[in-house]
Design a protein around this nucleic acid. Structure first.
Lengths: 141, 141
DNA sequence: ATGACTGCAAACATTTTGCAAAAGG
DNA sequence: CCTTTTGCAAAATGTTTGCAGTCAT
């Protein structure tokens, strides 16, 4: 996607198309996987965009619904563009992330709602798998 | 489960059965849902068990495999006893948690591994659903 | 008795807030 | 212009570490 398209995209959500936002959006779109704030800060450069602004921008994007938070049992959060429904396998050793699709969430949500006494609907779901990637498995041997 | 049984349980893992550990274990077992450190601290009383000791004890339990960490997109972690495979619905408004079973993780893991280039096996999975509970839905109207 | 465990203080990491300056539309 | 957005400093929150003393076995 071109810079011009990102501008249009942002404006479509009523946001001002500042260089930082365009940069962050492009980074998320290009990286195609969840990133920690540190990753983002390192990639974008803290001179380009203050860490605080990254936090604030991600929060804005998340509220508008096109960015999602992902948790990998770490003490910091990851963020990714909310595109097609997909989920992740996370390497417990090196943090490598791989995507997969087909979580069968429709069925899952139905099953959960059938059992639930307290909830009438589900807005969101989060599925993460944990393992050790081949490369780590090899070097840990 | 009786206090005596908790002692035996802990010793079975090579741990010393201290009052704090027994207390924490019992609390997790009785509450039957993920708890934040704050919940635990409030329930157990910080005079009974220092907050730092709670962190350390949970980490120990987690490493031994009978406690799991659960993330609900918050900036703090939740912990629960790792019993039968079950998952949670989390109220985005009040934090109420309800369990459900039957996540079909076998199939899920198979699907993921079939697509994966980097992973040969999965050790753990984490599934959370998010919604607004009936009681919050009513009061938010 | 001795190693495991705990409390306390202090460090560290992550995330949030306040406010004045800068910049988009 | 005028409102939104940003940077910087500082605070708040969550978590970890170091170390000396205590406790379980």
């Amino acid at each position: 996607m071109s810079k011009e398209n990102y501008k249009i995209f942002l404006k479509g959500y009523g946001l001002k198309a500042t260089p930082g936002r365009i940069r962050l959006l492009k980074y998320l779109a290009d990286s195609k996987k969840p990133n920690s704030i540190k990753d983002i800060g390192k990639a974008i450069g803290t001179r380009t965009m203050d860490q605080v602004t990254i936090y604030r921008t991600l929060e804005t994007f998340k509220t508008l619904g096109f960015v999602r938070r992902v948790d990998f049992h770490k003490d910091y959060a990851y963020y990714e563009l909310a595109g097609k429904d997909h989920h992740h396998i996370f390497c417990e050793n090196c943090g490598r992330i791989e995507d997969f699709e087909g979580c069968g969430s429709d069925k899952l949500i139905k099953t959960a709602l059938r059992q639930s006494k307290q909830f009438a609907s589900i807005n969101d779901h989060s599925i993460e798998l944990f393992g050790v990637c081949r490369s780590c498995a090899r070097s840990l041997k």
